[in-house]
């Protein structure tokens, strides 16, 4: 097991290095003049623009730019804001709690609602309850979060006045954003769980279990669900990514002070180093979450675990 983890961590580092290259490329290699995108050319003198170029280092050769950037990242320096020269990383850490709060509670909503409805749907396949759940799930994945968020604000803040429409302090400011993001995740999970449940229920071993005289409850929840959830564990990684990315929009809609908000504001202010820093940070978090998911996956599924054990009995 230790070896599996070691191997996974190594590849993790490689991927993170890769993502930093990618983030660098996105902003400095793609066509389009970064500096011109950042500023309003008419409001600055050519000298000021040249100064800015120099400050950003974009006047240096490409490889030098890259090496410089990479070195800084390794040192933990994710860049400075153009607007107020604030370093990015501390700013991210300052805003992290609000985002984590949101992402975790939204994941919780997604998982509980998604699992329950997904199983319900698969078990009552093609009955009215299944059809209803599937339609709800379709809505979940089809509604843009900026719209469903606004709808919730409209209903629960403007009309009913139950929850505040904005802010990031206190549990009651968390309810609506978590629901908004949670609905999206729940939609995905319902569809995933339903599909894999149905697939598992079609496997021959389910017949064996029934032939043994097991109660339907045991067949469904002890055996089928467990089999169905194993591929679902990898979905957790993807879900984590969706949740992180989703915060950008949600935090804008609900005016929450999270890292999603940092990036949204940076985009409005054309503050590219900040955008770059936040994207890289998210990528790193995402890679770590996925590595954890992979490791736990290997732990949960005996079929995968076996691959790492002795191969002696693996053939035949």
């Amino acid at each position: 097991m230790a070896k599996v983890i070691a191997v996974r961590l190594l590849s993790c580092l490689a991927v993170v290095a890769g993502s930093s290259v990618l983030v660098f490329c996105i902003l400095y290699v793609l066509p389009g003049d970064v500096v011109m995108n950042m500023i309003d050319p008419s409001s600055m003198s050519p000298e000021a623009i040249a100064n800015l170029r120099h400050e950003l280092g974009v006047d240096r050769p490409f490889y030098e730019q890259f090496l410089h950037y990479f070195r800084e990242v390794l040192r933990g320096d994710f860049g400075k804001s153009l607007v107020n020269s604030e370093p990015v990383l501390p700013k991210i850490f300052a805003h992290l709690p609000a985002t984590l709060e949101l992402a975790i509670s939204a994941s919780f909503v997604s998982l509980t609602v998604g699992l329950a409805l997904g199983v319900l749907s698969a078990v009552h396949r093609n009955k009215p309850i299944d059809i209803a759940v599937r339609i709800v799930a379709l809505f979940g994945i089809s509604m843009p979060t900026f719209w469903s968020g606004i709808l919730l604000i409209l209903i629960f803040s403007v009309f009913l006045g139950w929850f505040p429409a904005m802010g990031s302090n206190g549990w009651n400011t968390l309810v609506l954003p978590a629901l908004t993001l949670g609905m999206l995740g729940a939609g995905f999970i319902v569809r995933m769980v339903r599909n894999s449940m149905l697939e598992v229920l079609g496997e021959p071993f389910i017949t064996t279990l029934r032939a043994k005289g097991l109660a339907e409850r045991a067949v469904l929840y002890r055996h089928a669900l467990r089999n169905a959830l194993i591929p679902g564990v990898t979905m957790m990684g993807i879900l984590a990514g969706e949740m992180l990315a989703g915060t950008v929009v949600i935090e804008t809609v609900f005016s929450r002070q999270g890292i999603g908000r940092i990036i949204a504001d940076a985009i409005m202010a054309k503050d590219l180093p900040v955008v770059q820093g936040v994207v890289l940070f998210t990528a790193i978090v995402y890679v770590i979450v996925n590595a954890l998911v992979d490791i736990s996956y290997a732990y949960i599924d005996p079929r995968i675990r076996r691959l790492h054990n002795d191969r002696r009995s693996g053939w035949a």
Partner: peptide, 24 residues
């Protein structure tokens, strides 16, 4: 596939956001 793996480390929306910000 390693390149694809790397691109996939950045969630879709965020990647689009960064690209759009870079491109103007």
């Amino acid at each position: 596939m390693r390149i694809v793996d790397v691109i996939m480390t950045i969630p879709g929306v965020l990647l689009a956001l960064a690209v759009a910000a870079g491109l103007g």
